[in-house]
Amino acid sequence: MTAPRNFPQSQRALSWKTCYFLSLGILPVLIVLNFYGLYSNRFYFLKIDNYIFPIFSLLHFVFLYVMRFKIREGEYPDPVMRNVEYGMYAVLMIYLFKCFDTLYILMSYNNYQAYIIPETFLPVGFLTLGLQVFLVVLTLLSFWYRKALVGVYDFEQIDENMNSWQ
C-alpha cells in the first residue's frame, strides 16, 4: 500500500513496508546487543535485567503483525489493536529509557579512561545508540501510519461492531 498524497515528502521516502521491514530487522539486533556489556566486551545471559527489553519487544512484534494484517485486509481498527497500541506506548518509554541509558554509558567514557576499556566500547556503543534512536523513530512513524492507513479509533463504530455473532 502506498502512502496517501497528503503525506509529507519525508514520509513518502520511508513507506510503511520499509518501516515494517526495518523494524523487523532492528529489533533482533537490539535484542542481541541488549545482552552485551560495553565495559567488559562480554555477553551476559544470566542477568535478569537483560530480559526486560526482549520481553517487551515481543509486544512490538505483535503490533507490527496486527498492523500488517489490518493494512493487507483493509480492516478497521478494533479494541484488540487499540490495546496493543496502548501497550506500545509503554514499550516506547522503555525504548527511550534504553536510549538514555546507552547515552549515559557512552558519556562515562572519559571517567574510566584510566581503566582498561575494550576497543569495541565506542563503536558498539554508538551503533547501539543509533539503532535505539532509529527504533524510536520507526515506532513513532508506525503509530502515524496506523492512523493514516488503518484509521483512527472511532469508539462509537467499535462499540457498534463489537457483537461478532451477528
Score class of each variant (00 low, 15 high):
Q113T: 14
Y76P: 00
P123C: 04
I117M: 14
G87T: 05
M107R: 09
Y89H: 12
Q113W: 06
R72F: 02
A114G: 14
P77S: 00
T120E: 11
L92V: 06
M67R: 01
Y104Q: 15
L122R: 05
Y86G: 09
L106D: 11
L103G: 04
I117N: 05
Y109P: 01
E85H: 01
G87M: 06
D78H: 02
T102V: 15
P118W: 08
F100K: 05
Y115C: 12
I71R: 01
E119T: 09
L122S: 07
K98N: 14
Y76H: 08
R72L: 06
P77G: 01
V84T: 07
T102W: 04
E119Y: 08
K70Q: 10
R68K: 06
D101L: 13
R82W: 02
G87E: 10
P123V: 01
L103C: 07
L96P: 00
Y95N: 11
D78I: 03
I116V: 14
I116N: 12
Y109N: 05
P77Q: 00
V80T: 07
R68M: 08
K98D: 13
D101K: 05
P123I: 01
S108R: 12
K70S: 10
Y76L: 06
Y95C: 05
Y95V: 07
G74H: 04
T120C: 05
D78Q: 06
V84F: 03
I105E: 13
I71N: 03
P123H: 02
I117A: 09
E119L: 10
G87W: 02
N110I: 10
Y89V: 13
I105D: 07
N83L: 13
F100V: 14
N110P: 02
I117L: 15
Y109K: 02
F97T: 08
M93V: 12
A114P: 01
R72P: 00
F97V: 06
R82N: 07
V84M: 04
K98W: 05
V91H: 02
E75S: 03
L96E: 11
R82C: 05
L96W: 03
P118Q: 12
L92S: 07
Y115E: 14
L106I: 12
D101M: 12
V80G: 08
R82F: 09
P123N: 05
N111F: 13
V84C: 07
Y89T: 11
T102A: 15
M88C: 09
F121P: 00
V80P: 00
V84I: 13
F69S: 15
T102H: 04
Y112C: 13
R72M: 07
R72T: 10
A90N: 06
E119A: 12
Y109R: 04
Y89R: 08
Q113M: 14
P123G: 02
Y109G: 03
M107A: 15
Y115W: 04
L106C: 11
E119K: 08
L92F: 09
Y76Q: 10
Y112K: 11
I71C: 03
P123A: 04
Y104H: 14
I94A: 09
E119I: 09
G74I: 07
V84Q: 02
E85W: 03
R68H: 09
L92M: 13
L122Y: 01
I71K: 01
R82A: 11
P77K: 00
E73V: 04
M67Y: 00
N111A: 15
F121D: 06
M107Y: 09
L103F: 04
L106A: 13
V91E: 09
P79W: 01
N110Q: 13
A90L: 14
E75Y: 03
P118M: 13
I116C: 07
I105R: 03
I94P: 00
